[in-house]
């Protein structure tokens, strides 16, 4: 099964990089869930929590305070002004 390549970056450092099965992020309109094979998306991330289910079935929680998210070719980039692992 295809996996998502996830990259969470803050303005001045990389927060988390790895492979995941599922990413749930909070956009301005509400939560968006991304699985492998998702169509390309560019979205605005609202303040809140992003949950990443890794390939090892761990849940990574990241607190982000606004930024954007891009999805293409099973590559997810979440770029936030400030982000930290919870």
């Amino acid at each position: 099964m295809a996996v998502l390549e996830v990259n969470v970056v803050a303005a001045d450092h990389e927060v988390w990089v790895g492979e995941a099965k599922r990413v749930i992020a909070r956009t301005l309109d509400g939560e968006i869930g991304i699985l492998a094979g998702h169509e390309p998306v560019l979205g605005v991330v609202a303040e809140g929590e992003t949950r990443i289910l890794t390939t090892a079935d761990e849940t990574i929680r990241v607190k982000a305070d606004g930024g954007f998210l891009s999805v293409e070719n099973n590559r997810v980039i979440i770029a936030a002004d400030q982000a930290e692992l919870l």
Partner: peptide, 27 residues
């Protein structure tokens, strides 16, 4: 981008292209 894929795929904008641009440009 991966070989064969176009430089930029057709993105879906969330919530809208203008809103995305508004958020992106200052950053």
């Amino acid at each position: 981008p991966k070989s064969g894929a176009p430089a930029f795929p057709l993105y879906e904008f969330e919530p809208s292209a203008e809103a995305v641009l508004d958020a992106l440009l200052p950053r």
